[in-house]
Design a protein around this nucleic acid. Structure first.
Lengths: 194, 194, 194, 194
DNA sequence: TATGAATGAGGATTCATTCAT
DNA sequence: CATGAATGAATCCTCATTCAT
């Protein structure tokens, strides 16, 4: 990739990151192209140089976030630790996302209904891949005897739901630190598999 | 209350209900006063007879939903069944909300950031009351020896998070019926307390 | 039709008339909704109360103009004068349109390519009806022996083309008055049929 | 003229030709600099090396087309055939333009109102020259006795109008071939002079 | 010469809100 | 009470134009 292409890619990413931040603060409809541009000290018009329209920008936001999340979780999944250990790490990572990258995180867990079918498809697939990482670890854990036999899909849903919810109540100055939450959640959630 | 006042109250409720439906379908910003009015065969202008402005309408939506939810859950809480039994019923009720009244439900669990501080307060209080019902049953269950000692707040968060998430994946024609989900979730979630 | 409906219809017509004027001065793209509104001392927003969007407004312009033209020409066609006489009157009428209602006239003769197929259809039909009035008189004139046998469609095309062109060069302070032009054109064009 | 100057001139012509094509398809306002550039595999920015601005480009389009038309028609006019023969050839040529070079043709017949007075002047002159070729043949035909005495200007207007209109209805797969149309039109139009 | 990037002025459209009737 | 009509601010988007490289 040439220097110039790199630069464009970088710029696009900057824009996407800003957009994600604002959209999660104010919702998809609430975030205006003007604001997004302003945040980056650009003009509205410039945004349209990089993205065809608002929908396109939103779409790319989702793509970026989901791709990154899948890369990260893959790292954890493919280690050679015990399944419980790996699941604990996955939980910690997911919670970290939920809290520290709250903004991007919402893009992972909540689909945007404004997309057309053909755009929705690739997003759903990426989300499915993310889920499957959890299923995989649970299944293999059961096979190995580390975990008790459970309804894998249901348990995965419970895990994810419980974790996704954290961002709704977490406060930096709350009683529990992030590490504590990661610890407590892992302990309780692993209980479902024992 | 006079006849006419009753009528106004009824009308307000009708409007709120329609508004909730539309807002959950399209988001707060996505729902227009026009649409809400149209759904009820009224005109935009009439809405303003009943509500000062859109913000007021949204606020009243939240109030209504939260009040009802609290009334419903209170019924369950104040029975004289075992604590596990009562918790199972609360779980069933909450899941029923999450699936069958998805639209109103989102008002309970997701706060709307567009409110001013003084409006936010009463909403938070109602939401806190709802949460406390769960805490109460868990605590009393522990005291009575039915449940094992746990971090009440954390476990409540896990319960609610897990259940709230159901609406994101539930499909009417899916593999599991609502009853099955209620059953499975109750079983797994109670495990956290045993 | 009730009083209020009348009023709306009247207003729509006013808007359409203004729109036609501006559009013919500056082209479809050149005319802005702002301008059209300003001409009528309304605001942009008000226009959208009466017309869904710009395309709709343009479409209605065409419909109105074509309908009126057909009504007018029908009057002439259904008299009981000789065919030559009637054709002369049709020519006079058409030329009158071309010169005095230049603005509306362009809507009759030049199709707008911006329309979707389903909107284009009714417009084409109306335009076809207008053409058929000419064909009819020419054909019946031939049958009656008043006119010599000709290729009806070709001759009609020549007639209309010749007349439509007038607006491109006519000037109020030119050498020929409208009446003279109507006279001269009728004389020459009738020659094609003799 | 130096090699490099030639190259620039050639490039300018290419641009103008593309511009004409697009403008006639979508109107002056509808054609964007972007499109015109894209058609030639250049970038928007490059256009501005060759033309001061859009208005300049449009102006040059008109100039080129009109110049060429005048050259072509001059050829026919200055032959030594009979006047009727020459007029027939001029009609054939003009119709050929109207159908086969529809795009450029519209530049000849329809003035663009967006020009400033000082730009308009040279265009009008060229258009006048084109007209005068027709007048000349008609006049000389009358003098020679080939044609009957007529109002030259009026007849010329009828001729041009009738022919210009053809492009509005001509279809490649229609009933009449171009040659037939040229034939029929010549026959009918010459009738006006006999 | 050519281009990629940026800009800002407009233009279409939406929508909460107001108000006379 | 209800509504039709009007408004204006906000928003998305387009495009001619500029300019550094």
């Amino acid at each position: 990739m040439k220097r110039s292409e790199m630069k464009v890619k970088k710029k696009k990413e900057d824009i996407i990151l800003s957009a994600i931040a604002i959209m999660n603060r104010q919702g998809t409809k609430g975030a205006t192209m003007e604001q997004i541009a302003a945040e980056l000290l650009m003009t509205k018009g410039s945004l349209y140089y990089y993205f065809r329209n608002k929908e396109d920008l939103i779409f790319q936001c989702h793509v970026l976030v989901l791709s990154r999340a899948n890369e990260d979780i893959q790292q954890v999944v493919s280690s050679d630790k015990s399944y419980e250990e790996r699941l604990r790490e996955m939980i910690a990572l997911h919670i970290d996302y939920a809290i520290n990258e709250k903004e991007t995180f919402n893009m992972i867990i909540r689909p945007d209904k404004t997309f057309a079918e053909d755009q929705l498809q690739p997003l759903f697939e990426k989300r499915a891949i993310y889920s499957r990482f959890f299923d995989e670890i649970i299944e293999r854990g059961i096979e190995s005897g580390e975990f008790e036999k459970v309804d894998v899909r249901m348990v995965r849903m419970i895990l994810l739901g419980a974790m996704n919810w954290i961002q709704q109540w977490y406060k930096e100055d709350g009683k529990k630190s992030i590490e504590e939450i990661q610890q407590v959640y892992a302990d309780y959630l692993i209980k479902l598999l024992k």
